[in-house]
Design a protein around this nucleic acid. Structure first.
Lengths: 125, 125
DNA sequence: AATAATGTACTAAGTAGACTATTACAATCA
DNA sequence: TGATTGTAATAGTCTACTTAGTACATTATT
């Protein structure tokens, strides 16, 4: 259900969080949907239950899921449809910025691109 | 000369590599330019020479610099040939900005993403 | 009521990567 | 020759992540 890259620099527990958020944003997971039990997901992914538990704790403290001992963990409506696309757009923008950064696009060049969109040439920072 | 974020998840040696690549792409470092000696840069940044050395080794194996014991390390012209990638990155960034604009990402939010990259904020992988 | 399922908490240990510390060596330059 | 430079090797430290194991409280199920 959740795709994990064990070779990644991103910790597994964080990848799980990202997966839940991404699947919620995409509408695959809907508000009220139940997440797999900690032990089940851990077994499926071949990792330790503690690692999954940490993901769920982080997700709850961020408000993306709510949890109840004995019942399970469930998707909240924090990632409602309205901002889902916005979050995706932000995600893609961050990726583009990171990539541009690597290839030497300067801060001013980036801001200029934004200014070209919004108008107004006031410099920030 | 090279800005390092010690709190970042990105290893220092990798940040150094990225800085060299970025500065080369931006034209600040030009082909033939000499990099600071391993020991000098390490002292300036308050890190171990081994860490800088690893950066230089990685950069050379990637072809971004060439190196000679006793002489030093120098920028190659690899990046001047790869400037096309910068242009592509700019293109993709413009697309991402346009898309984000459509989905309601504000100017300040976009600027914030850039500041997170260039400012002292934490890096995103 | 009894049992199972579930999230949580805790401690201990293992693991891997990054970084430091130190020393030494070889090639180049002045 | 002596200083500078990149490289190498070894050992040690440190941190974050993950595993392992156990126990507990709450809820659901039978």
């Amino acid at each position: 259900m959740f795709q994990i890259d064990f070779a990644s620099r991103i910790p597994i527990y964080e990848q799980i969080c990202n997966s839940v958020i991404r699947l919620s944003s995409a509408g695959v997971l809907k508000p009220g949907d139940k997440l797999p039990p900690v032990r089940t997901l851990a077994a499926e992914m071949g990792i330790n239950p503690n690692t999954v538990a940490k993901s769920y704790r982080d997700l709850e403290s961020s408000g993306y899921i709510y949890t109840s001992v004995g019942r399970g963990s469930f998707i909240t409506d924090k990632l409602s449809k309205e901002n889902a696309k916005k979050l995706t757009a932000i995600d893609e923008l961050e990726t583009a910025v990171n990539n541009a950064y690597i290839f030497g696009v300067t801060k001013n060049e980036m801001i200029e691109i934004i200014n070209k969109k919004f108008g107004g040439g006031e410099q920030i920072d």
